[in-house]
Nucleic acid binder design. Sequence first.
RNA 1: GGUGGGGUGGCCGAGUGGUUAGGCAGCGGUCUGCAAAACCGUAUACGCGGGUUCGAAUCCCGUCCUCACCUCCA
Length: 481
Amino acid sequence: MALRLYDTKTAQLREFQPLEPGKVSLYYCGATVQGRPHVGHVRSAVAFDILARWLQHRGYQVTTVRNVTDIDDKILEKSGASYAEGFEPTEDYPAADPWFALAYRFEQIFNAAYDAVGVVRPSYEPRATGHITEMHALITRLIETGHAYPALDDSGDVYFDVHSWERYGELTHQSVDDMQDAPDADPRGKRDPRDFALWKGHKPGEPETAAWDSPWGWGRPGWHLECSAMSTKYLGETFDIHGGGRDLRFPHHENELAQSAAAGDGFARYWLHNGMVTYAAEKMSKSVGNTVSPDQMLTEAGPKAVRYWLASAHYRSELDYKPGALQEAESALERIENFLDRALPETDTAVASAELPSDFVEAMDDDLNVPAALAVLHQTVRAGNTALNSNDDAAAALAAQVHQMLQVLGINDVPEPAGADSGPTAEALSHLVEAQLAQRAEAKQAKDFARADAIRDQLATIGIQVEDTPSGAVWTLKGGA
RNA sequence: GGUGGGGUGGCCGAGUGGUUAGGCAGCGGUCUGCAAAACCGUAUACGCGGGUUCGAAUCCCGUCCUCACCUCCA
């Protein structure tokens, strides 16, 4: 069975066929680094990370590009504000903060957030400001072909002429005439309010460092242009998959498509969009102020559980964040890991060669139906536990399958938080607990269950859970004691 | 006004005509000194009203509610 993906542009499931046999080029929109990431950003990255991993699993050589928008109105605004009289600095926004320092600082925080849940770094991570030359070339082509024009006023802007491109609206299935004008639309030097900026002329008050020379005067790039210029540079004029959040479909992706196609490029062959993360059924976003940070999630559950939760709804569905959701994921994941601990006490080399269950493969091939794939994973865990309970040899093979499924979903690659498990502190703790457990074993031997239970309860109150197994007591450190 | 999604059992969340999604939380049981873990069993379901069909959560019509985008947004 072939991999099928839902393509926004044609609004249907399409069998995936790469442009070049054996290779896949994937571009997905990263963040505008003007502030800290929230859960929605991480969800999107996890969705496309799983796509990349699945393509790789299917044998494709995948080239992944995720852009960094390191210059835009908000970045300049926030930087500008940090120089103003009476500015109150915060940890995130210090005083006298150059725009490039601000952008790079948040870029690193974004990367830390992606890393924390095991998102593989893309092949390339280009920044908008590093591709001004390529953008100029694209603007020039658009002006030459009559699809772009310098502003009619003296702003120094250059606009894309939406009426010059009759396919405009094809991605989101809208016609220009039906689009509602922005209530606060500033017509500036536009022929039509819906024309969008390719190049923004330098404005008085904006820093000199945020302006580049161009055939149309000093200025800086418009938002949409970078993705067209960079995807083409790194992946070619036509490439396989373009991804991003659903909220980017319009205007961002529509505009990207228009400017690239109008310039004669084939551009993306499949468009994939992930659903929004909501909070109390409302889209999580900075402007609404209902964001939850990756750090906050990580205080509620382990990083693997966070990734599990982010993947637990289909990538095109909305994912509603609510307190308790992460604990549920943690419980589910714990059952999986308990099984693996029991069935694969030591690293087994046979694990790597295990084949994925066909139902799992089928689910993933069906537009990355991760919830259905997880159902297969859980069924395998149950079968494995049953096998273990009856000393059936099948357990090891099932465990190997479970391991492989976790691998493909990227859950195994989530780094464990450093600290608790190793080092002198852990060593000392281990000795203390083992001593207690030895006493408890003695008490149990003597049928002094009251004392044995007292020891267990005492350990429980400091966050150490004791469980009796056929091979003796084992203990685990539980957070949040 | 335009475009595109949704409304599934206590909660989350798959599923597009007939046979168990799955998880979490409950309840009962097995195991255990007691627990824990694990397994077994179990209840609660498809927004509302019509229609098509032998049969609909799934198709059609109507209706209500809701979300996203059209302005920066993963």
